[in-house]
Amino acid sequence: MDFINNMRDRLSQASQSTVQKAKDLSELAKLNGAISNAEKQINELYGKIGYKIYCTYYDSPLPEVSDLISQVTKLHQSIETCKMQIKAINSANSCPQCGAKISKDMAFCSGCGYKLISTEQPANTEPTLFCSNCGAPISSGSIFCTSCGQKIG
């Protein structure tokens, strides 16, 4: 009988130990999740703080952040240039009458039937240039951008 009682006590201790380890693992997972969530919230707040500082000191940045603000401003300008170029490309591929998408080989718009003028450039002309400041199309020979006034060249 001692053997059976001894075995039962050992099994009881092992199961209690296993249950405790499972509880510990569960608690560790909860704590790690809480840490991860708090770190995520902190990073979001850092982003909001940075954005507010950028907006506040955009025109006259603090010396500590002037280089960073300059970098953000240049990236915003780059984004705007890309958007203007996208707009120019999309407008070249849309019907001037109704705005429907068209392709270069179409003679008439499939949306409204408007007779399309050839969108291809003659072989002897230069391709359209874009302003490095605002991205607007620039006519060949222009000295200034007609959209933003930036000197060309």
Rank of each mutant, 00 (worst) to 15 (best):
N6P: 01
L11E: 03
L11I: 05
L11M: 12
L11H: 02
S12I: 00
S15A: 11
Q16K: 07
T18C: 07
V19P: 00
Q20E: 11
Q20C: 04
K21C: 06
L25W: 01
L25M: 12
S26Q: 09
S26D: 06
S26N: 09
L28C: 07
A29V: 08
A29P: 02
K30F: 03
L31A: 11
N32E: 08
N32A: 15
N32Y: 04
N32D: 08
G33M: 04
G33L: 07
I35D: 06
S36V: 05
S36L: 09
N37W: 00
N37R: 11
N37L: 13
A38N: 13
Q41K: 11
I42C: 08
L45A: 15
L45V: 11
Y46M: 13
G50W: 01
G50P: 04
Y51D: 12
K52L: 15
K52G: 09
Y54Q: 09
Y54W: 04
C55W: 00
T56Q: 09
T56V: 04
Y58K: 15
Y58W: 04
S60Y: 01
L62F: 01
L62N: 09
P63Y: 00
E64T: 14
S66D: 08
D67V: 11
L68A: 15
Q71L: 14
K74Y: 02
K74S: 15
L75S: 14
H76D: 13
Q77F: 00
I79T: 09
E80T: 10
T81A: 05
C82D: 07
I86E: 05
K87Y: 03
N90T: 10
A92L: 12
N93K: 10
Q97T: 10
Q97Y: 01
C98N: 06
K101S: 15
S103R: 03
M106V: 05
M106Q: 15
C109I: 02
G113K: 02
I117R: 08
S118V: 06
Q121D: 10
N124W: 08
T125M: 12
T125W: 03
T125N: 07
E126G: 10
E126V: 14
P127T: 10
T128L: 08
T128W: 01
F130A: 12
F130L: 07
C131T: 08
S132E: 11
C134G: 11
P137V: 05
S140N: 15
G141T: 13
S142C: 10
C145H: 04
T146L: 07
S147R: 05
S147H: 06
C148A: 09
C148R: 06
G149K: 03
Q150E: 14
K151R: 12
G153W: 00
